[in-house]
Amino acid sequence: MELAPGIRYAVADRHGGVSAPPFDTRNLGGTTADDPAAVRRNRELTACGLGLDPARVVFMRQVHSAEVRYVTEPFGTDAPPLDAVHTDRPGLALAALAADCAPVLLADPVGRRIGAAHSGRVGTVSGVVPALVAAMAEHGSNPADLVALVGPLACGRCYEVPAAMREEACAGLPELWSTTRRDTPALDVRAGITAQLTRAGVTGIRHDDRCTMEDRDFFSHRREQTTGRFAAYVWLTD
């Protein structure tokens, strides 16, 4: 699908891979307890299915940080710990893994630049998405030109947390405040990220509103505990 002119994206669900339960079947997460050979095959199958070169996909070693890096090639087996990347290289795809956290994709059709971030509760409170917008701006992108996609994640009606955690998170980002359907404390990470993007000057904000805890087409750590990771991809076309 097209995120912006000349920029394509895809959100891969959990189906169509080779992993055995509980990672069945398209687990793309390299730090899970899944068979590494199965993960590599899943990544190859997914890339090829999207028309991408499997050797030209950037996966991060995600650690719930606000670290951002400009990339010109994949990290290989020695990926540094970070949670956002951006590039201006056509054909180089960026992937953000998730299993309740939000994969967030950014596209600059004017400056021809793309970005991807992994933003869960900790990353959102830390500001990984605004940090990605700022990093892209430092490389010449105008935030007003950016188009963002906030992908599937645990929704604000499902993401239950202790009351003290909600208070602490919302002290710096009040838009996170939510309650579950049972009227217990919760966080709305989608609303928080949307507010951060808006304050950063991004107006073209799109959503894949599916909830990973409710939709079994996606992996969900909160629902399944030991599970795999799906991914959102973005890439510049030639």
Rank of each mutant, 00 (worst) to 15 (best):
R210H: 07
Q196T: 03
T203W: 08
D209N: 11
A163P: 00
S220V: 05
R206S: 11
Y159T: 09
A131C: 11
C158N: 13
D145E: 09
V129E: 08
A137P: 14
G156Y: 09
A135W: 10
V150N: 02
M136W: 09
C155E: 09
A169W: 00
T179S: 14
M213D: 13
A171L: 04
E160A: 15
R181C: 15
Q196S: 09
R166F: 00
A154S: 14
E138T: 00
M136S: 05
A164Y: 13
N142E: 13
G172N: 03
D183F: 12
R166P: 02
A169I: 02
D188M: 06
A144L: 12
P130R: 02
W177A: 13
F218L: 02
I205Q: 02
A135I: 11
G192D: 03
I193H: 01
G192R: 08
V129Y: 08
P143G: 04
L173Y: 05
I205D: 06
H221W: 12
R166Q: 14
V133I: 08
P130C: 07
D183N: 12
A171E: 03
V147C: 15
D208F: 11
D215T: 05
R216I: 09
D217Y: 08
A163Q: 13
L176A: 03
A171S: 06
G140F: 11
S178G: 12
H139R: 10
A131F: 08
I205C: 02
S178Y: 02
H207G: 02
M136A: 02
F218R: 00
M213S: 12
L132C: 05
R216W: 07
T194R: 06
G201H: 06
L149T: 12
E175K: 04
D209V: 12
G192H: 07
V129M: 10
R166I: 00
D209Y: 04
V189L: 13
P174K: 01
L153D: 09
T212L: 04
L153W: 04
L149Y: 13
A164P: 08
Q196P: 03
F218N: 01
I205F: 06
G192T: 06
V147F: 14
V202T: 00
V128I: 12
A164F: 12
E214N: 13
E167Q: 11
G140A: 11
T212E: 01
A154P: 05
R223L: 13
L187N: 03
D217F: 11
G127I: 09
F218Y: 13
T212V: 05
A134Y: 05
G172W: 01
V129H: 08
T198P: 01
R222G: 10
